[in-house]
Structures are given as C-alpha cells and as structure tokens.
Design a protein around this nucleic acid. Sequence first.
DNA 1: AACACGGGGAC
DNA 2: GTCCCAGTGTT
Length: 357
Amino acid sequence: MSFAVKLISWYREKGRDLPWRATHDAYIIWLSEIILQQTRVEQGMPYFHRFVEAFPMVTKFAEANEEDILRLWQGLGYYSRARNMHKAAKMVVNDFQGIFPNTYEEAIRLPGVGEYTAAAIASFASNEAKAVVDGNVYRVLARYFGIKEPINSGHGKKMFAEIAQEMLDGENPGIYNQAIMDFGALQCKPKNPLCADCIFQMECVAFQERFVDVLPVKLKGKGSRNRYFHYFIIMEDEQILMSKRGLGDVWTNLYEFPMIETAEDRSKLDLMTEADFTEYFEEDTVLTIVGKQIKHVLSHQNIYARFYVVGNPHALKKKKKSWNYHYYEKIDKLAKHKLIFSFLEKNEHLISAKQLE
DNA sequence: AACACGGGGAC
DNA sequence: GTCCCAGTGTT
C-alpha cells in the first residue's frame, strides 16, 4: 500500500473533527488558515468561531473597520495577520468581485497568503493538487525518508517542497493534506512521537535506523550567546569613572562604567582572581554588589550585567593597561546617587557622549 | 539568508 | 528555561 493510501486510511480512523473541515467555502477556509498560522488548533478554535459569527461573508469582513477586527484578534499574536486579512478581504471585493479565490495562483496574490495557505485553500476548497508544507509536513517527511537536510535552509525548503508534491495523492489532495498534517500533530509529534503504534514502522527510515528524535534538523538561528559584564562604580572625589566602548561590538561609542567581561558567570570572589581584574585593581580592592543581575536581550546575545561599588580609594592600579577613562563630572552627591540608581533600575548603564558632557 | 512578529502549551 | 505551533513579509 502506498504512503498516501495508508495515511488517508489512518486519517479516516483517527483524524480530528474540526469545524473548518465541514465546508468548501474558500472564505471560511481562508479564515481558519490565517488564524492557524504558527498557532495551535486549540488556541485558534475560539477565535475562528468568533470571526465566523462576526463576519459570515468576505464582504462583511471587508466592510468592517480595522479596530473591530483587531479587537477580535486580541490575544492571538502576530497582529499583522489581522491587518493583512482586512487588506485581503477588500482586495477580494475589489479585484475578485467579492468571490473568494479558490485557486493557488489567485489566492497567493492576497496579502498574508503565502505558499502554505494558498495550497491549503486551493486543495480544501477546490481539490487542486497542491501539497501543503507546514511544520507537520517537514517533520513527517524528514522522519519517513530519514532526511537530515535542514528544513530551514534554502536547499532544504526546496527539497521538502518537491518531495511533498511527489507524495501528494493527486486524486484526493484535500483529504491527503488534512491527513498528513493531522498525522504530524497527533502521531508524529515533535516530542515523544507515538512510534510504538505507528502504521509506518516498517518503512520509516528514521524509526528503523533509530534517529527519529533528531529529526527534523533545523539550523540554529545564530544561537544567542551569553556574555557576562561586570561593571565597577568607581568614585574619585566628586567624580565617577566612565569609559567609552570601542568599535566592533555592541553599543559602539556609548559610555558605561568601566567593566570586565567574562565568558561564564562569575562570583565576586572568582571575578577578583581573573587576570583582567588583577591587571586593573590592587589586591586590597573592596567590592560591594549593588542591585540585581540585569539581563539585557539583544538579537544575537544575552548580556548579563552585575554592578559593584568599589569601596576603597586608590583601588585602581596606576600603570598597566587602562580603560578609556572619562570622568562623569558636574554632579553633586545626590545627583550621583540618582545616576547610579537609574542605571540599575532602568537598565540604562549606557550613556551617550552628549549626556556625558 | 536573516529577522521580526506573539502568545501559549509541552516538557 | 527551550522548543514548537496548519507561516508571511521585509530587508
């Protein structure tokens, strides 16, 4: 028996009974598909019912004002989906005479409708032979064929799209597409897949070769690295020592307290034994931790910052290498206190040259 | 090709 | 905490 036949057979027995499957109305299908983008069925279900009730036809959707649509969408996330839906509904009224397109070529012209959603609409509404490729499909095919190609590389995406299209049951594309997605969601799950009672045990390459758990392979999104910054609040007379950040790193040309970076987290005692620390500070340096560790999330790094007040005068070595010193002047004691406080409270341990003046 | 866009559930 | 979810649009 073929993959498609077994899959559809599985689906008829164990597939879910979902409300948007009871129709061939492209508009209703579109509604459900946009809602379900990157969204679990259970989470999207109540929204689907609300939208169908509020806008039973695409013309109603097009006439609605955006605020009402967004209010109904509230809590679902990815709000551009709702705004694109409004544009799409208006486009259907203006460019498609109010008749929601049920072909791939037409549907994909609508904003918010990409390859997946166009294939879903076309196959469910008019049984067009276009294979859907969503997270479920990537996973099922990667395991069934034992494909270790990353699903989010250019080559991988093209490869999976081709295989998905080859596997599609050309006679029953709608049912097949529903089936493979349900199979991925219910049986071939990301974690703890139900291989023990799977109908594809014999032909599933990943199962036979025992590497189901590593598929599908996905390229790490640049992997956020962790960095640990240890800031020193050094007061000399009525001044606070600041230093300027250099090029080739975050926050170029901004000022911050002098600091030492470590690749791993460090306790105060361990920090004081770091080579960098002893380069700058005398042995009798007194450090007092102030505030909590602050986490600063950037696109590709997590920065954890701790702040220490240096308690004794002349803690800094005079020679050796030096920070790019600047003195934060023109502040009285109270202002100084507030400055430190605001840095710690508001995560603003960086200041511009303009502020420094 | 890399990123932004969100909230929630499973582990 | 991490990963993923019936992905798409932008740069």
